[in-house]
Design a protein around this nucleic acid. Structure first.
Lengths: 205, 205
DNA sequence: GGTCAATACTACAGCGAGTGCAATATTGCA
DNA sequence: TGCAATATTGCACTCGCTGTAGTATTGACC
């Protein structure tokens, strides 16, 4: 009755079903491609009715972005919110990214293939850029606004957050394109320096 | 026979049909919303068969982005390519934007409603961000690479281009949100300053 | 252990976007 | 006028996704 049951059988089974569907979907996507895989096929592989897929995931795209790992929005937000008083938002972000890419989960082979799939599938790239990125910008804007002593909905924080988000994305893409001929840390330093310098210019007014 | 006929009757009629479909679509979108409007309805309004719609536009979204006006990709590319030797890419971009927003076409009421529709329709915003923006970044990267004496596919130009694109988008969104309580020119100056300062930091290495 | 309500699952019917294909109408040119 | 190119259409189909209503499972309480 109380909704605060630690883990009812029902709840656990739902989670297992969700995980099964997600795993089946990812397998098929990686094997045959995202567009080439049909929801009916995923359902069959997961041994559920096609209709059930949509009880767990609102769209076919969502199943690729349901992972709570690799520094989801909440993790960044927390790291930025709890940063040391002297630490700038950009520094905190830089530090956070370093911890994320050092995480074994991030360097996992399946995780790498998943990111590759997203990058190479227009529909997934579009989804990520217009869902994940927007949320990311909102979080960044809050931290930057704090640094600047402004509100998050003012021009400067939003602009810096947008630029930072785009710069990081460009960095990741570059890293992926060049297949790690460069190390990522200097790239990150460049990006951080770029942002800090821009921020300083905004502060000078 | 030669494809260099100035304007065959056939060609002109095709253009007219395309314009008719686009106009009918825009009208319906603005009246009833993008999602609420069906391709069948558009076709009916334009007096063509539903199938014909897809002979002119690959998707329902494309019909919103077929305008050659408001500084399409080619116009920016040309302005950046033909800039004065002393003029930086960011300066040229800044100047270009000023001419665009001064253009009567840009301040046209229908054009404003079209941009509003795009901003407020998730599917259209996603389309724009993942088609228009990507192209825009490519163009910017070329110009920035020129300034930096690097290749367009290197890290710094791509990052700056991505940041610039995002910063400008943030600026436009801010401008739209606040409904022009601020003037746009100071905002543009802020954005340009931000980018120049960041660029300088990349150059110092 | 049996009963009952909540809820997870499923089948079915249907909508809208988008495509391939073959038939038909229109157009430009000889 | 007649012919070839091409524009337009109708049709049948796939796929993502939704509403609805019926069935099965589950957990709590007796």
């Amino acid at each position: 009755m109380f909704s605060r049951m630690e883990a009812g059988l029902r709840e656990r089974k739902k989670q297992r079903t969700e995980a099964t569907i997600a795993a089946a979907a990812l397998d098929l996507f990686l094997e045959n491609g995202f567009e080439e895989t049909t929801v009916a096929e995923i359902a069959e592989a997961a041994e559920v009715a096609p209709r059930t897929f949509f009880a767990y995931f609102p769209t076919k795209e969502d199943v690729v972005f349901c992972k709570p790992h690799d520094g989801g929005p909440d993790a960044v937000a927390e790291r930025l919110a709890n940063r040391e008083p002297g630490e700038s938002a950009v520094d905190a972000l830089r530090a956070f990214i370093l911890t994320v890419i050092a995480d074994p989960d991030f360097n996992d082979a399946d995780e790498a293939r998943r990111r590759k799939l997203i990058r190479e599938t227009p529909a997934l790239a579009a989804y990520e850029i217009s869902h994940v990125t927007v949320e990311f910008q909102r979080i960044l804007a809050v931290a930057v606004a704090d640094d600047l002593g402004q509100e998050p909905d003012e021009m400067a924080p939003r602009m810096v957050a947008a630029a930072a988000s785009a710069a990081l994305r460009a960095m990741v893409d570059y890293y992926a394109d060049t297949d790690a001929v460069d190390e990522i840390e200097p790239l990150l330093d460049q990006a951080a320096g770029f942002l800090e310098a821009g921020l300083a210019s905004l502060n000078e007014r």
